[in-house]
Design a binder for these strands. Structure first.
Lengths: 239, 239
DNA sequence: CTGTTCATTATGTCTATACATAACAACAAG
DNA sequence: CTTGTTGTTATGTATAGACATAATGAACAG
């Protein structure tokens, strides 16, 4: 008859996580000290310490002595799939990064849009397509759909200084994501990439949610021979 | 002048991890109880508990009350890149899984083999190519190189009951891995997949080490339209 | 004004203790 | 032989207290 027993330190962890995920404590916020949290939840500091250590291990907060713990900026991609920060990727490789917006349309979600965003009902959406260039050579085509129901402020965003992906990371506090990687053949819709028809390309689709609400769906196309997704890891995090 | 201070619980964690990674405690081993370890390292049980909790969080061990903690079977692939357990994948989808070995050769590593395995010096290698089938329809071509210097017992393995990938997981205690995903075009070497030339394919390369020693390099080719790599995750592990 | 020292503060680590809980085993009752 | 009870064991959770350590800033000496 008793409710399922959830350990205190997990409940505290969940409570803090909720404040971060909801945006109540945006990135950069200094969260209360261990002693304060211990008083809030009426428990020992060690218990709070466990909760915070846990959150730090999962990368939601960063801990520093004396200055306290702060909410970390979300790293939307896992380390394994982090080629999506195109600007950083390109600049790390020593090229200059540039991108252009090819199309930008606001419309009521079509049947296909609902499918892409996994929307139950049609809502207004912003449809974008962009071309990413490294040293002025096209290397990635982006096809994006943003739900204006979830991110109404996208309607007025110009995306001049920031690509839609980077902008969204700053606007939507945190999210879950689903990736899909496949291989496709270059066709006329990818003319901007200046590829011979039939060139194999890597297609990466990502669907993002914030609190169960669809936020965005993006499809990135790379020429398969020029770029590759590299992931390196060990089973343990190393001591 | 004092040596850099490494916390006790980390040192204990590292010591246990070393026994697991070295193969001294192979998967399935029941590791000593917290009380025993506390005696061994002359510290409190809570300190050992922290080390073990840490190892469990990283998936190296599994903890069960009463029966104690056991070394887990390594999950060579991260959750994000786990389509490599082809048999499980296929059977989960409701198909029957089968695979055939197309070629099997033992040779001194060629220049290209050294490149693939990142070998400093040529060593004897086992080169395999296999075809994986779902419901008797080919769906993945595997091209594998195994270093016989690292895994001499591969020389006598028949790979009749187990595919080379599954066999290796059981033989090599634990490892680091590097993945590379790209898109390629089907050509004559993939005739076994029965694809039209030029069909875009997903190529997944994986290179595996055990204790700095190259173990295996594998190249998996999937038809890009038929299969896709799906990864789903949230930034936090959920409470 | 500059650099050093030192106290303060918040987190990091560790201990000893206590009780809760899950799993297993052994034994008793049906 | 099956079922239920009970005890043992190992882990799980939580606490209070102690000391270590890093970062910060303020007081202070040059």
């Amino acid at each position: 008859m008793t409710q399922r027993a959830i350990p205190l330190h997990r409940r505290i962890r969940a409570a803090i996580e909720a404040k971060i995920l909801s945006g109540e404590w945006p990135p950069g916020t200094r969260i209360p000290t261990e002693a304060e949290l211990a008083a809030t939840y009426d428990c020992a500091r060690m218990t709070v310490n466990k909760a915070l250590t846990d959150l730090a291990a999962d990368g939601l907060i960063e801990r520093r002595r004396k200055s306290g713990s702060v909410v970390k900026r979300p790293v939307l991609q896992s380390a394994v799939l982090d080629i999506h920060d195109l600007k950083a990727e390109v600049e790390a490789a020593g090229f200059t990064y540039r991108y252009t917006i090819a199309t930008r349309k606001i419309r009521q979600a079509t049947r296909a849009d609902c499918e892409r965003l996994q929307l139950a009902k049609p809502v207004p959406v912003l449809a974008l397509s962009c071309l990413h260039l490294a040293d002025d050579r096209p290397f990635c085509w982006e096809d994006r759909l943003i739900s204006l129901a979830a991110v109404p402020q996208a309607q007025d965003a110009t995306f001049i200084h920031q690509s839609p992906g980077a902008w969204l990371i700053g606007e939507v506090p945190w999210s879950a994501a689903e990736h899909r990687i496949s291989a496709v053949s270059a066709d006329a819709s990818l003319a901007a990439l200046e590829l011979a028809p039939g060139t194999p390309c890597l297609a990466i689709e990502r669907r993002t949610w914030d609190a169960e609400q669809p936020v965005t769906h993006v499809r990135l196309i790379y020429p398969g021979d020029a770029h590759a997704l590299v992931a390196r890891f060990a089973p343990s995090k190393a001591g």
